[in-house]
Simulated assay, not measured.
Amino acid sequence: MRDPYKILGVKRDAGQDEIKAAWRNMAKAVHPDHNQGDPTASARFAEIGRAYETLKDPKKRVLFDNAARMAEAKANEGTIMQQRQAAREAAVRAKAAQANAERVMEELARAAAQKAAADVAMQQKTGTAEPPEEMIERIFGTQARAAAGGGRAQGFTAGAAKRPEAEPATSDKQPDAGKAEAEQQAAEDAAAQASAVMQPLSLLTSLVRRFTGSGAAAPEKAPDQFVTKTVTVDEVIKGSWVSIDLGEGRDIGFALAAGTTEGHQVRLKGQGHKLAGMQRGDAVVSIHIATDERFTINGFDLHTALPVTIENAVLGTEARFEGPNGPITVTIPAWSGSDKTIRLQGQGLANAEGGRGDLVVELRIMLWEKPDDKVTDLMRIMKNGLFL
């Protein structure tokens, strides 16, 4: 059954008078006698009646509200887990970019020192002196100063590059959703810094190679091009062939290999930027997996919710549902609650080591779409302790 509040167009805190008035107005509008040319009028009228039957009875309304809150809590839990996973992955990428930045800056410093030492020695021989500022400009040139200046303008200082962690919360009792939001924001900031710093650092690397004389046998390599590709869960499961627009009319395709998950990077050799006098750089594609109604992703594991009626949860049954690779039948043990999970090994995403993650089936107890008087009486007897 759909949400009765949405069917009647009322808020969740609506009173009985408001619910009754909404039902009457809608029932009159969609009554089959007034809509004889509409084949869906009878179904709509019946749906409005079921919604009113649910909301006018306080007990049925409480049952529905509790089930809705459980579903919303589970959805929020999945969102928080995805945000935390994305935050961890972004922090790892930021840390790698920071290490690369430090390495390049060390190379640049060594190259500058060697060049400066050679120039000073030459000046001592010739008896000339050059101001340090002019020497630095002559050694690095305007291109290096522009790249370094661009980095400084965007806040790439030693302190800023080392902040992939979220800022401490002002309260120890901050909700999980707030913490996840803070972690996600901090990770996005760190990832943005890492992505933006790669272009000027690529230019600095080329300059270091030029000063040290390395790479003389072949043209220097242009900076890498960083792009993001959004794919579906089905494409990842099947290892599909996907394509991405790299600009300049270039549409490059590649296969989603084993080990692909959220934040995974694919390096396409020689498919990046093209600059005059330099080898074409690489294209680095970051994979983003779109939200799926059936599955949520945790590492290489897939999570899915399986609705179960009350009688099947109590007595146990076999349930069949659509898995990532086709229909799957699982055995639900007797007395299985909504906290019960069934783990199917090897039914998740493929990893780079040749194995696969698991499919985690989370049970959700659901009420019947149409109220049942016998079940209602049984629950009332159990509640009041009138056992026969």
Score class of each variant (00 low, 15 high):
G141T: 04
N35M: 15
E181G: 01
A350R: 13
L306H: 10
R210T: 08
A99G: 09
A91D: 13
P58T: 11
A182G: 06
G49A: 10
K125R: 07
Q154N: 06
W241T: 15
L349A: 05
Q184F: 14
R93T: 02
K269Y: 09
A186C: 03
N100M: 09
I297Q: 10
A67F: 03
Q82T: 00
L63R: 12
E107V: 01
H34V: 05
A283Q: 04
D372A: 06
G354C: 03
D38R: 11
T205H: 08
A216K: 15
F64Y: 14
L203I: 02
L108G: 04
I7W: 05
Q114Y: 02
A169L: 05
F295R: 04
T170V: 08
E369D: 14
A255T: 15
K60E: 09
L367H: 12
A67T: 07
K173C: 04
N66E: 08
I252Q: 05
M81F: 00
K74H: 04
A160H: 09
L204V: 13
G49Q: 11
D13Q: 00
N325R: 15
S336V: 04
P39V: 01
I365A: 01
T212E: 10
D224R: 05
A51L: 04
E130K: 14
A51W: 06
F45M: 08
A160F: 12
L359K: 08
A177R: 07
Q225H: 03
P168H: 06
K274A: 14
F321K: 03
A352I: 10
A75M: 10
W241L: 15
K229C: 09
A190V: 15
F254Y: 09
A67L: 06
I237A: 05
R320L: 09
E220W: 00
K28D: 11
V227N: 04
I342F: 08
D251M: 01
T205D: 11
D33N: 13
E235D: 05
D3A: 07
R163L: 00
Q16K: 00
T142Q: 13
A118P: 06
Q193L: 09
L275T: 07
D176F: 10
F295Q: 07
D251P: 01
A116R: 14
Q83D: 06
V242C: 15
Q345G: 07
T304N: 02
P307F: 12
R294I: 01
I19V: 15
L256Q: 03
I328A: 07
L315A: 15
I80P: 05
A196H: 03
T329P: 09
Q193Y: 08
M26A: 01
T170F: 11
M1N: 04
A75G: 08
G272L: 02
